[in-house]
Design a protein around this nucleic acid. Structure first.
Lengths: 223, 223
DNA sequence: TCTTCTATACTACCATACAAGTACCGATTG
DNA sequence: CAATCGGTACTTGTATGGTAGTATAGAAGA
């Protein structure tokens, strides 16, 4: 048995990953100017890998490259967040329905423990991680991990908004109880109820959007 | 009134666009080896923009970059085509329902003429272009152009398969009549019927997939 | 004949240098 | 004082050279 060396990812890919995380968690605030040279200096690498990371990020709508001017973390656009929710809801509803019809005992157990883990999260970031893990698990059960990849990309815009509410004002209890409803519906192999539960959940996630847009106007696009 | 200069896209972006088209139309066949140097020479540019185009294509799952080995047009994977269809159906159903509830007279007229145009297509490529135009128009009517961008990216895998059937064996008549059903449902503001029509349509699009996989085994992945 | 080694010709990756465009600050001029 | 011009310090875009890893063909050896 040979251990596959697990090729180290290219520098460009690593930089992309790190910047992406920082942007999604709003450690890099919307509107911030990035610079190939500055980041290259910080990591002690050349500009080229950084540039390639920027290209990847631009394709994900996380930064905007303005030629000869600069590269900027894109501001949050309310309409884009709503569009992301629309797409995510459409996909996740379909995924949840399939999960409801295909879930076995082991999968249901994994879902239940995933929900339980959410109650233990002690801050917003931990909760969001547990949240994401559960949604992904539903996709796995449905045999639609590929669909999750699409959701994962689309929901980045939503996540930026959610990370802004770092105070635990967010009603995590309500979200958890919604998660519980979804899991129960899947466990009962009830596609209709699963769909309804997912839709209700999606409607709630963006509850704070208007307040946040008002509170951090410099991070949002428009007037 | 000043004419905006319309900045020329960077070379890298242009190369990306051209290669993407060629791949989706299967002019560049699945499995083909690409080469930074070779393409750079053909366009008489340097390797760097070509490399950046490769990175963009890799992120769209159209090519696979194998470090120090080469870059290859990804072979068509049947399961990925089916996954693409799943995601596309989920989104387009939601879009069609919204279109049904919001369509006005002008939009309906545009849809009807789009369907009419499909009957005039004289080859597979023309038909597919008209097909795409109509689906996009539905998204416009629904006010969900952003959702269409996601569909557009996901459906590239499906399109490669469809372009393979360049002989007019494909039952375009049937597809057109399905399109007509979708338009009628939207015109009647009947979301339920629109959803059903879209689902039926999506089921039909991949009808030829098994035959194509058997006919062009070198373009498909797996045994 | 079959296997193994070696030279060679690729590949993508990274660093560096240069080019071209933009923003801004300050001096100069009306 | 206001407006304009010009230099400077940025920015991203492109070209090129060098590096390390991979595949392959052919020679040498068993």
């Amino acid at each position: 048995m040979e251990t596959i060396p697990l090729r180290a990812a290219s520098i460009g890919a690593q930089v992309h990953q790190q910047l992406r995380d920082a942007i999604v968690r709003t450690e890099l605030k919307p509107g911030t100017a990035l610079s190939e040279a500055e980041i290259a200096a910080r990591y002690e690498i050349s500009r080229q890998p950084v540039r390639e990371a920027f290209i990847r990020l631009a394709q994900e709508y996380l930064v905007e490259i303005r030629p000869q001017r600069g590269t900027f973390v894109r501001r949050i656009v309310v309409s884009e967040v709503l569009d992301a929710r629309f797409v995510r809801e459409a996909i996740e509803v379909a995924v949840a329905r399939e999960a409801a019809s295909r879930a076995d005992a082991a999968g249901i157990a994994r879902l239940q423990s995933a929900v339980a883990a959410q109650g233990l999260a002690r801050n917003n970031a931990e909760f969001l991680a547990a949240d994401e893990a559960m949604h992904r698990e539903i996709a796995v059960i449905a045999g639609r991990e590929a669909a999750w990849r699409v959701v994962d990309q689309v929901k980045a815009q939503m996540d930026r908004m959610r990370y802004l509410s770092y105070q635990d004002v967010s009603p995590t209890d309500r979200l958890i109880s919604q998660h519980r409803s979804i899991v129960e519906a899947i466990a009962a192999h009830d596609a209709e109820r699963a769909e309804a539960a997912v839709r209700e959940h999606m409607a709630d996630i963006l509850q704070q959007l208007p307040q946040l847009a008002q509170r951090y106007p410099e991070m949002f696009e428009g007037a």
